[in-house]
Amino acid sequence: MRKASRLFEIIQILKLSRRVVTASEIAEKLEVTVRSIYRDIAALQAMRVPIEGERGLGYILRPGFDLPPLMFEHEEAEAILLGLALLDRTGDADLKHAALRVRGKIASAVPDPLRHDLFSAPLYAWGQPAPAPEGADMAMLRRAIRDEQVLDMRYRSEDGQETERGVRPIALIYYSGWMTLVGWCELRAAIRNFRTDRIMTLTSTERRFRGDGDRLRRLWVDSWDKPPA
Rank of each mutant, 00 (worst) to 15 (best):
P227Y: 02
D222H: 07
R146C: 13
G160E: 04
C185K: 10
G211N: 06
Y155M: 10
A77K: 05
L118N: 12
D197S: 07
R192H: 05
A79F: 00
L86H: 14
P131W: 00
G183V: 10
R35F: 00
E148P: 15
A98E: 07
E31N: 06
R142P: 09
E9Q: 13
P133W: 01
R168W: 04
P113H: 07
S5D: 14
A85F: 09
G83T: 12
S5K: 02
G213S: 03
P228R: 01
Y155H: 12
A130F: 09
H116Q: 11
D152A: 15
Q45W: 02
P133C: 03
R218A: 03
V167E: 01
P133T: 04
L57K: 15
G127T: 06
I80T: 04
G91M: 13
H97S: 15
R19K: 13
R48I: 01
M140A: 15
G58L: 10
Y175L: 13
W184A: 11
P131E: 05
L95S: 14
E25S: 10
R156I: 07
D159A: 15
D92Q: 07
F8Y: 06
F119G: 09
L61N: 05
E28W: 00
M153V: 15
A27D: 04
R156W: 00
F209R: 02
A107R: 15
K226A: 08
K96M: 01
A46L: 05
I51R: 04
A121Q: 01
M71Q: 07
V221S: 01
R168M: 04
K15Q: 13
D152G: 15
E31L: 11
V150M: 10
I41N: 06
L30V: 05
E31T: 04
A99P: 14
V49G: 10
A121H: 14
E148V: 13
D137V: 11
V150E: 09
R192I: 09
A189R: 11
R156M: 13
M47N: 01
L82P: 06
V20W: 00
G53F: 08
E54Y: 06
L202E: 02
L16A: 14
R207T: 13
F194L: 08
P228G: 09
L7F: 07
V21E: 07
D112I: 14
L44F: 03
E75M: 07
P113A: 04
Q12V: 05
A139C: 02
A77M: 06
